[in-house]
Amino acid sequence: MKGSAAMSKLCVRSFSLSLDGYGAGPGQNLDNPLGVGGKALHQWAFTTRTFQKMFGNEGGATGVDDDFAARGFDNIGAWIMGRNMFGPVRGAWPDDTWKGWWGDNPPYHTQVFVLTHHARPSITMEGGTVFHFITDDIHAALQRATEAAGGRDIRLGGGVDTVRQYLRAGLVDELHLAISPVLLGAGENLLAGIDMPKLGYKVAEYVPTPNAVHVVLTKS
Protein backbone atom coordinates (compact mmCIF):
# COMPACT_ATOMS: atom_id res chain seq x y z
CA MET A 1 0.00 0.00 0.00
CA LYS A 2 1.75 3.12 -1.21
CA GLY A 3 0.69 6.70 -1.77
CA SER A 4 -2.17 7.57 0.57
CA ALA A 5 -1.26 4.63 2.80
CA ALA A 6 1.76 6.57 4.01
CA MET A 7 -0.49 9.39 5.19
CA SER A 8 -3.31 7.35 6.68
CA LYS A 9 -2.93 6.17 10.27
CA LEU A 10 -4.88 3.31 11.81
CA CYS A 11 -6.20 4.66 15.11
CA VAL A 12 -8.16 3.26 18.02
CA ARG A 13 -9.98 6.15 19.66
CA SER A 14 -12.09 6.44 22.81
CA PHE A 15 -11.75 2.75 23.60
CA SER A 16 -13.09 2.29 27.13
CA LEU A 17 -11.40 -0.16 29.50
CA SER A 18 -12.09 -1.25 33.06
CA LEU A 19 -9.39 -0.93 35.71
CA ASP A 20 -8.82 -4.66 35.38
CA GLY A 21 -8.32 -4.42 31.63
CA TYR A 22 -11.65 -5.50 30.15
CA GLY A 23 -13.09 -3.78 27.09
CA ALA A 24 -16.41 -5.64 27.33
CA GLY A 25 -18.20 -7.57 30.01
CA PRO A 26 -19.27 -11.23 29.79
CA GLY A 27 -22.48 -12.39 28.14
CA GLN A 28 -22.83 -10.03 25.19
CA ASN A 29 -26.31 -10.16 23.64
CA LEU A 30 -29.08 -7.93 22.32
CA ASP A 31 -29.94 -6.71 25.82
CA ASN A 32 -26.28 -6.30 26.83
CA PRO A 33 -24.41 -5.32 23.65
CA LEU A 34 -21.33 -4.42 25.74
CA GLY A 35 -21.66 -7.46 28.00
CA VAL A 36 -22.88 -7.52 31.57
CA GLY A 37 -21.62 -4.35 33.26
CA GLY A 38 -19.99 -3.12 30.07
CA LYS A 39 -22.10 0.01 29.75
CA ALA A 40 -20.44 1.43 32.88
CA LEU A 41 -17.14 1.59 31.01
CA HIS A 42 -18.53 4.35 28.78
CA GLN A 43 -20.05 6.65 31.41
CA TRP A 44 -17.24 9.16 30.81
CA ALA A 45 -18.47 9.60 27.22
CA PHE A 46 -22.25 9.57 27.58
CA THR A 47 -22.54 13.11 28.97
CA THR A 48 -20.11 14.76 26.53
CA ARG A 49 -21.27 17.19 23.89
CA THR A 50 -19.66 15.03 21.20
CA PHE A 51 -21.63 11.93 22.23
CA GLN A 52 -24.91 13.84 22.52
CA LYS A 53 -24.37 15.42 19.10
CA MET A 54 -23.80 11.97 17.56
CA PHE A 55 -27.38 11.10 18.46
CA GLY A 56 -28.90 14.41 17.42
CA ASN A 57 -29.17 15.92 20.88
CA GLU A 58 -28.30 19.45 22.00
CA GLY A 59 -26.01 20.34 24.88
CA GLY A 60 -23.68 18.01 26.71
CA ALA A 61 -20.58 18.56 28.78
CA THR A 62 -17.41 20.16 27.46
CA GLY A 63 -13.93 19.76 28.91
CA VAL A 64 -11.19 17.15 28.70
CA ASP A 65 -13.48 14.12 28.28
CA ASP A 66 -15.30 15.86 25.45
CA ASP A 67 -12.00 16.94 23.87
CA PHE A 68 -10.88 13.31 23.68
CA ALA A 69 -14.27 12.18 22.36
CA ALA A 70 -14.17 14.88 19.66
CA ARG A 71 -10.62 13.94 18.66
CA GLY A 72 -11.97 10.46 17.95
CA PHE A 73 -13.79 11.77 14.89
CA ASP A 74 -11.13 14.19 13.66
CA ASN A 75 -9.75 13.48 10.18
CA ILE A 76 -11.42 10.04 9.93
CA GLY A 77 -11.93 8.87 6.35
CA ALA A 78 -13.03 5.27 6.97
CA TRP A 79 -13.81 2.81 9.78
CA ILE A 80 -13.06 -0.84 10.41
CA MET A 81 -15.05 -2.82 12.96
CA GLY A 82 -15.66 -6.40 13.95
CA ARG A 83 -18.95 -8.14 13.46
CA ASN A 84 -19.66 -8.08 17.20
CA MET A 85 -19.65 -4.29 17.11
CA PHE A 86 -22.03 -4.26 14.14
CA GLY A 87 -24.61 -6.44 15.82
CA PRO A 88 -25.54 -9.43 17.99
CA VAL A 89 -26.34 -11.77 15.09
CA ARG A 90 -24.02 -14.79 14.99
CA GLY A 91 -23.32 -17.26 12.20
CA ALA A 92 -24.80 -16.92 8.73
CA TRP A 93 -27.01 -13.86 8.23
CA PRO A 94 -30.62 -15.09 8.50
CA ASP A 95 -31.85 -12.10 6.46
CA ASP A 96 -30.97 -8.48 5.72
CA THR A 97 -33.12 -6.86 8.41
CA TRP A 98 -30.31 -6.16 10.89
CA LYS A 99 -28.50 -2.97 9.82
CA GLY A 100 -26.60 -2.13 12.98
CA TRP A 101 -27.37 -0.66 16.38
CA TRP A 102 -27.58 2.92 15.19
CA GLY A 103 -30.82 3.37 13.23
CA ASP A 104 -31.15 4.77 9.71
CA ASN A 105 -28.43 7.42 10.11
CA PRO A 106 -25.39 5.88 11.86
CA PRO A 107 -22.77 8.24 13.34
CA TYR A 108 -19.95 7.17 10.98
CA HIS A 109 -20.66 9.13 7.76
CA THR A 110 -17.91 7.24 5.92
CA GLN A 111 -17.39 3.80 4.46
CA VAL A 112 -17.28 1.19 7.25
CA PHE A 113 -15.60 -2.19 6.71
CA VAL A 114 -17.08 -4.94 8.89
CA LEU A 115 -14.97 -8.07 9.43
CA THR A 116 -17.09 -11.21 9.15
CA HIS A 117 -16.87 -14.85 8.08
CA HIS A 118 -20.22 -14.57 6.31
CA ALA A 119 -20.66 -12.59 3.10
CA ARG A 120 -23.41 -10.01 2.77
CA PRO A 121 -24.14 -7.22 0.25
CA SER A 122 -23.06 -3.70 1.20
CA ILE A 123 -25.65 -1.49 2.90
CA THR A 124 -25.98 2.22 2.11
CA MET A 125 -27.41 4.20 5.02
CA GLU A 126 -28.44 7.81 5.49
CA GLY A 127 -25.74 10.40 6.16
CA GLY A 128 -23.06 8.85 3.98
CA THR A 129 -22.43 5.65 5.96
CA VAL A 130 -21.90 2.55 3.80
CA PHE A 131 -21.32 -0.80 5.51
CA HIS A 132 -19.14 -3.26 3.57
CA PHE A 133 -18.79 -6.84 4.82
CA ILE A 134 -15.25 -8.17 4.44
CA THR A 135 -14.70 -11.92 4.53
CA ASP A 136 -10.96 -11.66 3.79
CA ASP A 137 -8.34 -11.12 6.50
CA ILE A 138 -7.54 -8.00 8.53
CA HIS A 139 -4.92 -6.90 5.99
CA ALA A 140 -7.45 -6.92 3.14
CA ALA A 141 -9.88 -4.88 5.24
CA LEU A 142 -7.14 -2.36 6.02
CA GLN A 143 -6.23 -2.05 2.36
CA ARG A 144 -9.87 -1.40 1.41
CA ALA A 145 -10.24 1.13 4.22
CA THR A 146 -7.00 2.89 3.26
CA GLU A 147 -8.23 3.31 -0.30
CA ALA A 148 -11.58 4.61 0.94
CA ALA A 149 -9.98 7.01 3.44
CA GLY A 150 -8.23 8.99 0.70
CA GLY A 151 -5.29 10.02 2.87
CA ARG A 152 -7.31 10.62 6.02
CA ASP A 153 -7.04 8.34 9.04
CA ILE A 154 -8.85 5.05 9.62
CA ARG A 155 -10.62 4.49 12.92
CA LEU A 156 -10.59 0.96 14.24
CA GLY A 157 -13.72 0.28 16.28
CA GLY A 158 -14.41 -2.72 18.48
CA GLY A 159 -14.83 -5.27 19.53
CA VAL A 160 -11.96 -6.32 21.70
CA ASP A 161 -10.95 -9.28 19.52
CA THR A 162 -10.74 -7.09 16.42
CA VAL A 163 -8.44 -4.58 18.12
CA ARG A 164 -6.28 -7.42 19.50
CA GLN A 165 -5.81 -8.86 16.01
CA TYR A 166 -4.60 -5.53 14.62
CA LEU A 167 -2.40 -4.87 17.66
CA ARG A 168 -0.74 -8.27 17.41
CA ALA A 169 -0.02 -7.59 13.75
CA GLY A 170 1.59 -4.27 14.69
CA LEU A 171 -0.80 -2.36 12.45
CA VAL A 172 -2.28 0.11 14.97
CA ASP A 173 -0.46 3.45 14.84
CA GLU A 174 -2.25 5.13 17.74
CA LEU A 175 -4.35 3.79 20.61
CA HIS A 176 -6.45 6.02 22.89
CA LEU A 177 -7.72 4.16 25.95
CA ALA A 178 -10.21 5.68 28.38
CA ILE A 179 -9.69 3.74 31.62
CA SER A 180 -12.86 3.96 33.70
CA PRO A 181 -13.06 3.59 37.51
CA VAL A 182 -14.92 0.30 37.14
CA LEU A 183 -14.00 -3.33 37.90
CA LEU A 184 -15.66 -6.01 35.74
CA GLY A 185 -13.85 -9.14 36.94
CA ALA A 186 -14.56 -11.01 33.71
CA GLY A 187 -15.17 -10.41 30.02
CA GLU A 188 -12.82 -9.64 27.15
CA ASN A 189 -9.39 -8.42 28.20
CA LEU A 190 -7.79 -6.09 25.67
CA LEU A 191 -4.06 -6.37 26.33
CA ALA A 192 -3.64 -9.74 28.07
CA GLY A 193 -0.77 -11.67 26.50
CA ILE A 194 0.24 -8.81 24.19
CA ASP A 195 3.74 -7.39 24.78
CA MET A 196 3.08 -3.75 23.92
CA PRO A 197 6.65 -2.46 24.51
CA LYS A 198 8.06 -5.23 22.34
CA LEU A 199 5.66 -4.16 19.57
CA GLY A 200 7.03 -0.62 19.87
CA TYR A 201 4.23 1.12 21.77
CA LYS A 202 4.94 3.88 24.28
CA VAL A 203 2.80 6.26 26.33
CA ALA A 204 2.45 9.61 24.55
CA GLU A 205 -0.28 11.15 26.74
CA TYR A 206 -1.68 10.46 30.20
CA VAL A 207 -4.54 12.73 31.28
CA PRO A 208 -6.72 11.93 34.30
CA THR A 209 -10.22 13.36 34.75
CA PRO A 210 -12.85 12.61 37.43
CA ASN A 211 -14.49 10.17 34.98
CA ALA A 212 -11.57 8.34 33.34
CA VAL A 213 -7.85 8.28 32.75
CA HIS A 214 -7.08 9.00 29.11
CA VAL A 215 -3.97 7.25 27.85
CA VAL A 216 -2.67 7.60 24.30
CA LEU A 217 -0.16 5.02 23.08
CA THR A 218 1.79 5.54 19.90
CA LYS A 219 3.92 3.14 17.91
CA SER A 220 7.53 4.07 17.24
Rank of each mutant, 00 (worst) to 15 (best):
T218R: 15
G103W: 09
P107N: 11
C11L: 14
L19N: 03
A61G: 13
N84G: 15
G21K: 00
R13F: 05
P107C: 11
P106D: 09
I138Y: 11
R164V: 06
R13V: 01
R164N: 05
L17N: 03
L191Y: 14
A186N: 08
M1F: 15
G127V: 05
I76A: 02
W102N: 13
G60A: 10
F15T: 02
T47S: 15
G38M: 03
A149F: 03
G82P: 08
G170V: 05
K2G: 15
A78N: 05
G159P: 14
V89D: 12
P88I: 09
G3M: 07
T146Y: 01
H132W: 04
R71N: 04
D173R: 03
W98N: 07
G157F: 03
I134E: 15
R71F: 00
L191D: 06
G151M: 05
G56W: 02
G87H: 10
S180G: 00
V182M: 05
K2V: 15
A192V: 08
V64D: 04
K9A: 13
V215M: 15
Q52I: 01
T162W: 07
G187K: 04
A192Q: 12
L156I: 03
V207I: 11
F68H: 05
G158N: 05
K39C: 05
L183D: 08
V172T: 02
V114W: 04
N75D: 14
G87Q: 12
N189L: 07
P88S: 10
N105P: 03
T146L: 06
V172G: 00
N57H: 09
Q52A: 14
G157S: 09
R120A: 04
L217F: 13
T62M: 04
P106C: 11
G128A: 06
A92T: 12
G87Y: 11
A192L: 04
D161A: 13
G150D: 10
I134S: 12
T124P: 11
A149C: 12
V160S: 08
G72S: 06
P107T: 09
V112G: 09
W93C: 08
R83L: 01
T209K: 11
N75V: 00
A6K: 13
L217C: 13
G150Q: 13
G38P: 02
D195A: 06
A78Y: 05
A5Y: 09
L191S: 05
G128M: 13
D96T: 07
A178S: 15
L17K: 01
V160M: 04
P94G: 10
N211G: 13
Q111D: 15
Y22I: 07
G103I: 07
A192N: 09
G187I: 03
L171C: 01
V163L: 06
K202A: 14
G59D: 03
M125H: 07
L30Y: 07
S14M: 13
R13T: 10
G56F: 01
T135K: 08
S14F: 00
C11D: 07
M196N: 02
V89W: 04
V215H: 12
V216C: 09
L191H: 02
N57G: 11
V163H: 02
M196E: 00
R71L: 06
I123Y: 01
L19R: 12
P33V: 01
F131P: 07
V203A: 14
Y108P: 02
M125S: 09
S220C: 12
E205S: 10
